[in-house]
Design a protein around this nucleic acid. Structure first.
Lengths: 334, 334
DNA sequence: CTGTTAGCGCCTTCAT
DNA sequence: ATGAAGGCGCTAACAG
């Protein structure tokens, strides 16, 4: 039994399709009270539901946005997604989320797919290797917003943590606790992923005096699988760091695994701060001191801006970088 | 600059729209080599990309499935979603995920929305309060599959953990460690959510001898916010349990929060096993013994079956309950 | 081997 | 206040 169409409703109510359409779109203008009732009744008895596909085809608008996250394993990504969904829900927009898995080819495929589906705009955590793709989107006036990462030469609105401030916060806290030999470990830098690079650079700059002494030995960007080994190497140095900053949640987890595996003690063997406030941070032993991002606000503001761009109430061509302040959550690991 | 349409490509290549359509759909059959080249070139120079909406409208098929999870906060849900996405990706299907937040009204709204979007089928973690809705779907021959939960009187294929076996596994392990007074804490039972009810029932049945003695005091289904208090009450009993089974990950986390807050010791104060293998289980202090579900297999098999139903290679009307075996992951909390 | 024709379900002037 | 007609972009016979 196939689904009823607008024509069925019209026939049932003895009106024309266009009248039904008016009714559905609340163009009640001067529609007869009795007509409305007849239509409503027909809709009920038939169990009619509009076909969004047909509507979108005609209106050239799907009320759907695409979100491409570089790597959904980051808690940051999942939190941002929640925030985006909240605001979209309010505005009767829908969200399709795709996970590029840090793979530029996948990212490209998903963007094409979502364009084919006629999404009205994009929020993306760019892998960074698809510059031409973003430029295409822009040139076609596709509303586009970046989160967490930038792509050099692509001028779009972007929402990022103030990474320098985040590192500063951590380093200051380490220093206040008397630590002088401070290291940083983060995930791989080879793809020039913005937050990793910015955090690493900020770290080097803030601690340039120690960089002269310890240099690269204290600052490592490694593939996830190599982090445990990298940490142990760092700790095996003649003058090992007494404090370590985990550049993001994935790095933090690897460090915690090593702590467990090698029965290290925190903060006795080394103090630890992680950027990104993972959900279980407070439940660990010891509870973990972290730097939190205002993820909810970031996601909300990004989504608001995108929807405004889609609705034409905001300049399509704006390309500001919106920086958000980090917050230190002091627990016991430092 | 608007996006090019098939007509544009056709004009550019000096062929008709249908020829372009054939080309796109690989109906090359006997198409002239030279024609193909012309079309290909036109597509390239125009940057043409097919409009999936129009295609779907015509074909009455969107190659998209809807997934409605009751509560995305359960790690179980997120793992299942990953598995579903994997198999859909293989079959060139797309997935739209919606989170009902354990709210039947939201669930209903999402199902209607996805139907309006013409998804080809559903995988749902039902809240349980929308029986009529599911019956409608079924009656319209909508491919539908349940995961994790059942709805009484709605005959559809369902993929669930063998909850009795899971509880048995946990209890046996407790017993083997010499525990005789065993309690269970899980999230609220008021909505008759299948896994909670089944686990609680299994628990009562397996430990009926102790149920006579301790009864409800040892078996509690509580709102998340009340779990900490409930645990403390249980521990304050004259004969407190020496072992506690957490009915799911959310209950487990609440228990861990209480452990932290009240400085309890595990397994000295009580032994602990959680159903659902949360990601950080091995990193806790002590590492947590858990009962894992084969989430990946469950998600994969559910998605495979749904796609088969959509493609008509599997009986639409089947309504088997597929049970999956749990697995004990022994760590140190018991 | 390629073009013509007729919709898919809905929306939107423009008449009436 | 309501209806008729055309078209969104694509596909699927059926001709040619």
């Amino acid at each position: 039994m196939k689904r009823p169409t607008m024509a069925d409703v019209a026939r049932h109510a003895n009106v024309s399709k266009s009248t039904v359409s008016q009714y559905l779109n609340k163009r009640y203008h001067y529609m007869g009270e009795e007509t409305k009732l007849r239509i409503e009744k027909a809709i009920q008895t038939l169990g009619y539901e509009a076909n969004v596909l047909a509507r979108s085809l005609k209106q050239k608008k799907t009320s759907t946005i695409g979100v491409i996250v570089a790597n959904i394993l980051h808690v940051f990504s999942t939190q941002i997604i929640r925030a985006i969904e909240d605001v979209c829900h309010e505005h009767d927009f829908h969200v399709i989320v795709c996970n590029a898995d840090d793979d530029p080819a996948k990212e490209k495929k998903y963007i094409q797919m979502l364009r084919a589906k006629q999404v009205d705009g994009f929020i993306v955590f760019p892998t960074g290797e698809n510059k031409a793709l973003y430029e295409d989107l822009l040139q076609e006036d596709y509303p586009l917003i970046f989160i967490d990462r930038l792509v050099e030469g692509v001028a779009v609105d972007a929402f990022l943590l103030d990474n320098h401030a985040a590192v500063q916060l951590a380093v200051d806290h380490f220093l206040s606790k008397g630590h002088e030999r401070i290291g940083i470990i983060t995930t791989s830098l080879i793809h020039h992923v913005t937050p990793r690079v910015e955090r690493m650079d900020a770290f080097g700059e803030i601690l340039k005096h120690q960089a002269i002494t310890f240099g690269r030995a204290y600052q490592r960007g490694l593939e996830t699988r190599d982090i445990k080994a990298g940490l142990m190497e760092m700790l095996a140095l003649e003058e090992p760091p007494t404090a370590i900053l985990a550049g993001n949640d994935l790095a933090l987890i690897e460090i915690l695994k090593a702590v467990k595996a090698y029965k290290l003690r925190i903060p006795e063997d080394f103090a630890l701060i992680g950027i990104d406030d993972i959900p279980f941070a407070g439940l660990f032993d010891p509870p973990l001191t972290t730097i939190a991002q205002p993820t909810f606000r970031m996601g909300k503001e990004a989504a608001d801006l995108l929807i405004h761009k889609i609705n034409g109430v905001e300049d399509l061509k704006s390309s500001q970088i919106h920086r958000f302040p980090p917050r230190l959550i002091q627990r016991a690991s430092c």
